[in-house]
Structures are given as C-alpha cells and as structure tokens.
Design a protein around this nucleic acid. Sequence first.
DNA 1: CTTAACTCGAACACCAATGTACGAGTTAAG
DNA 2: CTTAACTCGTACATTGGTGTTCGAGTTAAG
Lengths: 212, 212
Amino acid sequence: MNTTSSRGAGTRPEGAPRRRADAERNIAAILDAAAGCLGRQPQVSMADVARAAGVGRVTLYAHFPSREVLLEAVLDRTIAQAGAVIEQSQPDEGPADDALRRLLRSSWQVLDRHLRLFDVAQRELGPARLREHHDPAISRIEHLLARGQKEKTFRTDLPLNWLVTCVYTLLHAAADDVNNGRLAQKKAGHVLEATILSALAVPPNGSQRRAG
Amino acid sequence: MNTTSSRGAGTRPEGAPRRRADAERNIAAILDAAAGCLGRQPQVSMADVARAAGVGRVTLYAHFPSREVLLEAVLDRTIAQAGAVIEQSQPDEGPADDALRRLLRSSWQVLDRHLRLFDVAQRELGPARLREHHDPAISRIEHLLARGQKEKTFRTDLPLNWLVTCVYTLLHAAADDVNNGRLAQKKAGHVLEATILSALAVPPNGSQRRAG
DNA sequence: CTTAACTCGAACACCAATGTACGAGTTAAG
DNA sequence: CTTAACTCGTACATTGGTGTTCGAGTTAAG
C-alpha cells in the first residue's frame, strides 16, 4: 500500500482521512484529460490519458484502478455537467420549439461531448451499466420533444423515439463536421438549428407524396 | 511457400497460373463474412472473420496477407455494389426530390452497410487511402443534392456539404435504430424519407425566427 | 520539521491480436 | 492417378495494451 491508499477517487467516503491537495488536483486533471481524449478518439490508451493529464501512468492507476472505473467516473461527471447546462436553458418554459432553440444554441457543443462519451461507454461498459446511471440529459430532451408533440408544435406523424434519434444524430454530425473543417464553427449553431427544426416541424398537407 | 502462392486474391493477374475452384469459393466466403462482421462490429479480429467464413485462420491469411489488405478488398467490393444499386435508381432522372425518394426507398440498407464500412476504413486506413478509392457512391449523392439545390427543389440556405452530411447521418441513424429494435424495419423506409425530405425542403418564409 | 501522503520511472506478468512457419492431410484439375 | 494447389491445426514470435510491484524521491499538512 504505497501509492495512495487506493481509494475510489470518485466520491470520497466521509469517514476516511482527508485527501491531499495535489492529489485532488491530479484527479481533476485526469478527468479533464480523459473527457477530452475519449471525446476525440474512443480507443485512447490509459497511457495516453496519463500523458495528456501530465501525470505518471502509475498515478493514474492509483486513483482509478481500472479503465472501467475511470470511464464511469468521467461518465458521471459529464452527465452532471450536461444536466446542469440543459437545465439552465429552461426547457420547460414557453413553446417547445423556442425551448429547443434555446437548448441547441446554448449547449450543442457540451451535448456532443456527452454523446460521444456515451458511445464509448455503451461499447465498453455495455448497455446495462449505462442504464444504471439514468442519464438526466437524455431523458430531458426526450421529455421536451414529447411536450412539443403533445402541443402540436412538433410533427406527430413520426414516433417520438425517432425524433429523439434525429436530434442526437444531427447534433453529433454537426460537431463532427466542425471538427473536420467541413463546417465553420461560427455557422454551426444556426445550421443545426435550421435543420433540426425543419426536420421536426409539422409537415405541410401535401407532403406524403408529391403535392397532388 | 506452401499455403497458396500468396497472390493478392483481390484481382488475379491474368498471366499467373489459374486459381482453383475451392480457393475462389473461400475468398468469396471470406469477403462476405468480413463485410457482415465489420458492418456489425468494427473491431472484429481476423480470427472472428475466419470463423464466420467457415475457414481456418491460416487460410484467411493465405489470401489476404494482412488486415489492411482484407479491409481494402472488402471496401472495393462494397463500393462497387453500392455504386451499382444507386445507379439503378436513376438519380439523374426527373425532379431531384423524386430521385432522392427513389434512391432512399431502393437502397438505404445497402447504403448503410457502405457507410459503416467507410467508417472503419477511415479509422484504420486513414483518410488518404480512402480518397484513393474515389468513392462513386458518395459523390453520386452529393451530385444529386447539388442538382436539387440548383433546381430550387432543395433548400439553398444551408451549404451543400451539410445537406450531404444530413442524408448520410440520418440514413445511418435509421439503420441503427432498426438494428436495436427502436424502429420497426417496415416503417423505417417511410420514416427516413419523411425526415430527410423535410430537412432538405426549402423552408417557408417566416422560419428564420418564429413567424413574426 | 517530521511524517504520512503522494508521485514517479522502471520493471514485470498477463492477455489478446497480428502475422509467420511447418508439416501433414485434402481436393480439384489434368 | 498423379500432381500441384489448397486447407488446416499447432506452435511461435511480436506487438501493444492493461494492471501490479518496488523503491526512491517529492510535497502537502500538522
């Protein structure tokens, strides 16, 4: 028991001896680095994360005894962040389409990082473990879209599930295009908003086939 | 030089001694298996592919000396398939939106497999090698969307690149939802069509903000 | 200043995947 | 039927990631 007392590092048990300041700092740096790396490239190694955090590989393992544990910690943190940001945009206030606009404008970037991480977690932790975390961000958007359908602001000819998929998917795509220089960062917000709202809008009468 | 004469297996050089029938059969089985596996799970091992093809691992390596070579072979084959299917829907005939409808109806499933494979290839072969293959399928869709913009059938307030991204992305998402049981196979075609055409349609006047 | 917490590099065991070598057995083709 | 092509299992070398151990050095905290 040399390198730290191998505590979980995620949430310190109140009873145990307090953690030192530099340890706390390193843990934060690791979580930041991990969130960044995993967002960019899903298969980053622990060594990569450690390097990105400016920390020895051993130190990383001291705080997070396995890749799995690290992943869960990062996941928890990101879920909390995303949840907070979403809540800030007051998704329950006013017309659903306005609320969605606010939400997209304020936080599509944060949400994208969230989605990417979710993707990794789904693959490496399995869908079961994912569900245990009960993601408020994801259900938030679903809730908003459901409200929009109920108020006839959003189309009802397509299932709610699919609308959710569309929002996530396009969000993700926009962030991807920005990352690869196919879409200007500045325009992304507007483009995304225009596309999603068109996709979700109640379609005009003659749109089932060509207008007869 | 025991196991086969280690020829490329992709395209046989006309001068060399002809290939035996069972070899040809195995190569086909391997390509099928690889295409299937890679579509479902990007990180399948060579051993997995061999097993799926009902072939020894050594035999696999006899025909495709490395994972890279196999990947390129599968890629070539899939590109050819997708190209043919797309061409069949006559994307240059009639109004652009009708053409797109035909294209989606007839081949969104094939196209999705194509996209998944492209994803793996991008990661493992790098973007450079990808461009060498000069994918006709991808440029086909881009061409169709460009035509639609020129004819004012599709919206012009968003860049062409982004429209392309939308089509690919939603295609992919629909296939994914079907795979995970979130969307009924039967409904997928219609749902996809309705969503994409809404997203691409020329927006009504007051849609920049709320209709003032 | 003393101590316990913390960090670090180096070295190790372990595992899974890739790719190679061999030798014996099968099978298509002439 | 003879031959060359082909297949297969086993075994091996290599690589790259994971997780652990050790021992010595550094640093926060009292």
